[in-house]
Every structure is written in structure tokens, then in C-alpha cells.
């Protein structure tokens, strides 16, 4: 499945609906479908919010493929070069709410839910490959 997505926050619902339909079509369990949708949401949100510094309309791609053991998710955007895996991991060990910093959770959740996440820079594109076992 290939989805072309505009850098508009309203696109998240549409892409998440298409992701759920893809999972349903491929008989993915509810639990995994939830994880995959969350991953798609978090990465899309980052691209829409941070990849483009101008106010112009841009389009980026989401590809999704299933084989016997996993789902491969690939995001390609032509925004500012950014490796989300280089972001500092939030400290989640705190047991005291006052000490817990706000933010940085999106990519952290993706890394927790996915089997593998890889970033590469391909020409002028950011490429993020995510593998989820199903």
C-alpha cells in the first residue's frame, strides 16, 4: 500500500483509517493493528510538525507491505534532514510525576513497539524503515 500524505494535521485520521483497513485486509490482530496505527500516527505527526519549516504544502509517502512474519513500514519525506533515532531517549524510570519531563515520547513509543527502526538519508529524502512482527 502506498499513501501520499499532505503535511496537514487533518491527514492523520485519513492515514490511520487506511492503516487500519490495511491491517484488517491482512488479518492482523487488533492488538498489532493498534500498535501499527500508533506508529504511523507518531511518525506522521513528527513529519507534519517538524520536517517543513516553510508554510507551503508538501507531500510525503508512506509505504506498507506485509510478508509472512512482519509488516514493513517506510516513510519518505523531502523535509529538513532529521534522524529521529538520534533524539535523546526520555528517562522513564522516574516514579515521581514532578520529575518526569514532558515530551520526546513519540519516537520512544515507536522504538518500543517496533522490532526494528532504521533511518537513512537518500539524496534529499529522509527515509525511515520500521519493521513490526505480526
Amino acid at each position: 500500500m502506498l499513501i501520499e500524505i499532505e503535511n496537514n494535521i487533518e491527514e492523520i485520521d485519513r492515514a490511520c483509517d487506511l492503516t487500519r483497513a490495511f491491517c484488517l485486509q491482512h488479518k492482523i490482530s487488533d492488538e498489532k493493528c493498534h500498535d501499527i496505527t500508533l506508529i504511523v500516527d507518531e511518525i506522521m505527526t513528527n513529519i507534519i510538525k517538524y520536517a517543513y519549516s516553510d508554510k507551503q504544502s508538501h507531500t510525503f509517502s508512506l509505504l506498507m507491505e506485509k510478508n509472512d512474519i512482519h509488516i514493513a513500514i517506510c516513510f519518505l519525506d523531502d523535509g529538513t534532514e532529521f534522524d529521529p533515532l538520534a533524539a535523546k531517549t526520555p528517562d522513564i524510570s522516574s516514579t515521581c510525576i514532578e520529575d518526569r519531563p514532558i515530551g520526546g515520547l513519540g519516537i520512544f513509543i515507536v522504538r518500543q513497539l517496533a522490532e526494528d527502526v532504521k533511518y537513512s538519508r537518500v539524496g534529499n529524502l529522509n527515509r525511515l524503515d520500521i519493521v513490526v512482527n505480526v
Binding site: 490511520c16 505527526t45 510525576i97 515520547l105 513519540g106
Partner: peptide
């Protein structure tokens, strides 16, 4: 469904 954008709000309210 809740994403990190929602978790952020929960954390702010809790604080």
C-alpha cells in the same frame, strides 16, 4: 486510541 500527543496532556494535568 491515544498517541503521545494525548499522553502529554495527561502528564500535564497530573503535574
Amino acid at each position: 486510541y491515544i498517541s503521545s500527543a494525548g499522553l502529554r496532556v495527561i502528564l500535564m494535568a497530573g503535574k
